[in-house]
Amino acid sequence: MAAKQTGNGSTPAIVCEGVKKWFGDFQALSGVTTTIGWGEVVVVIGPSGSGKSTFIRCINRLESHQAGRIVVDGREMTNDLRNIDAIRRDVGMVFQQFNLFPHLTVMENITLAPIWVRNRTRTDAESQARQLLERVGIPEQADKYPGQLSGGQQQRVAIARSLAMNPRIMLFDEPTSALDPEMIKEVLDVMKELAESGMTMIVVTHEMGFAREVAHRVLFFDYGTVVEEGTPEHFFTNPQHDRTKLFLSQIL
């Protein structure tokens, strides 16, 4: 299952070289190096506190790395605000806690950024939002507030909100961890559909079924670095590293 090379030609979607990050004296990332191609679906797993969230938050600069290089779509992450804004418009992110805007309706949540960042007209943005809601399976909830939806529905709205900016890369940080078991499937189904459509995705998750079925590649994180990586078959059937074996034995 090799990654499809769709993107805009030569540059890979994401290149990380020796990315390091400290919180005070605590080193959260100790040299992450990996390259992610266009259309590739990468699942990141690892024990709690191993730096998975920090890693994907560095990719859209919610955290800033202190050493190494991160290049997204040929643009290097520096402190240049305009570069960061351009990258953020191309990279969508879905959070564990949904982080929908509670004071806005579902429709307003989705159309906010297209209207203000992409200067789309309201009618234009709303018709796109309706299509997206259709795609994530909740077209009838457009006029409700997030507080009136179930967790699974909220997370699907959050996915639609990210997609509304037409991103080329999507980051998911444990999108199903805050959900009741019966709602996990509806969110995973949406993500599966997204992966099949050729979206470049990095997914932090504990859903091993999803990793097996959808991922092109699995990264195992521990102590702020990639300890082991490979295809799902390799990873689940024939792990090399002791720590990987230990982790898998604990969660499977």
């Binding site: 982080n99 203000w116 960042v117 909100r161 509304a164």
Partner: peptide, 23 residues
């Protein structure tokens, strides 16, 4: 206000000023 609100606003591409004034 939860810090996640600001992060979500920034992540969809809103600027600092827009995130503050709209979210």
């Amino acid at each position: 206000i939860n810090k996640g609100q600001y992060e979500a606003a920034r992540a969809v591409g809103l600027s600092v000023v827009q995130s503050t004034s709209l979210v």
